[in-house]
């Protein structure tokens, strides 16, 4: 799942917006060359102070998530005020006193952050959103800004979903596929929509989308079967294998399937017609 295409560059290839403030500032500068970037620096410091000590499921410091989300928001072309709110979008989960953000970043930013937290995605009318091909620099409406931050938040969560417990992975992926992906596409954010779709499908259909997870032997075995039936048996056996906890049990399961494959092939290729087999 980690190898799927990403909107922003991967962390290990070069210093990039998802890992550093300087990268983030560079992205904002490409879209808004004349903007004053000092609020972003302050927002980063603020987030770093209050999120200090918090970690993600991956073990990464929480601030990496704030920066990554802000970078995606910046990449969409959002103005610095929205990127600022993106950096601070989880600040309410910290001991930061409520008045402090108002004092330093203004009421508009605080309102935007609250809207990001309270807006229900299924209540945003998709017709109200035109992010993909709007003239640059973007002057987003409140709804568009909220959506941009929420989408970026979800995109980064989906990129790092491997670290989340499986039960939650499936719930989040299902919601992403059914609700969030269509919104991203409706808003004209094709790349974001495509990546969300790919990442959530990979969670929901591991047997078909990550073939590598099926033991190669089982996959080879299914080649004996009629072509139309291969996917079904591969998926069925894969699901059973995943529930076996010991290596020995998995090996026995696979070996038994291997031994019976010719029999199954015969059964599937030669349906009985009124006679015994």
């Amino acid at each position: 799942m980690n190898d799927r295409r990403r909107l922003a560059p991967r962390q290990d290839t070069r210093p990039c917006p998802t890992s550093s403030l300087s990268g983030l500032l560079a992205v904002v500068r490409t879209h808004h060359p004349d903007a004053d970037l000092s609020p972003l620096q302050h927002a980063y410091n603020e987030a770093a102070i209050w999120h200090a000590g918090q970690t993600r499921h991956s073990g990464d410091p929480f601030i990496t998530h704030c920066v990554a989300v802000a970078a995606i928001v910046a990449d969409i072309g959002m103005p610095p005020a929205v990127v600022c709110a993106a950096l601070l979008h989880d600040i309410e989960d910290t001991p930061c006193p409520p008045g402090r953000i108002t004092e330093r970043f203004g009421q508009t930013t605080v309102d935007l952050i609250s809207a990001v937290r309270t807006t229900r995605l299924d209540e945003i009318p998709p017709s109200a959103l035109k992010l993909g091909n709007a003239p640059k620099p973007l002057q987003p409406t409140r709804e568009e800004a909220v959506l941009a931050i929420r989408l970026a938040d979800r995109l980064h969560n989906m990129r790092t979903i491997t670290f989340v417990p499986p039960t939650r992975q499936h719930r989040v992926a299902r919601e992403t596929l059914e609700l969030v992906t269509p919104l991203a596409k409706a808003a004209g954010l094709t790349d974001v929509g495509r990546e969300l779709h790919d990442l959530s499908s990979a969670v929901l259909r591991p047997a078909t989308s990550t073939l590598a997870m099926t033991p190669p032997l089982l996959t080879v075995l299914t080649l004996l079967l009629p072509a139309t039936q291969r996917a079904r048996w591969r998926e069925e056996w894969h699901a059973e294998l995943r529930t076996l906890t010991t290596r020995g049990a998995r090996t026995r399961f696979t070996a038994r399937i291997l031994l019976s494959a010719p029999r199954l092939t015969l059964t599937l290729r030669h349906p009985i017609r009124g006679r015994r087999w």
């Binding site: 499986p166 039960t167 939650r168 499936h170 047997a207 079904r232 998926e235 069925e236 894969h238 699901a239």
Partner: peptide
Amino acid sequence: DPAVHEEAGRPRRR
């Protein structure tokens, strides 16, 4: 049913 296996966090069974 997707709801069941997703809740359990495993691939769907036949």
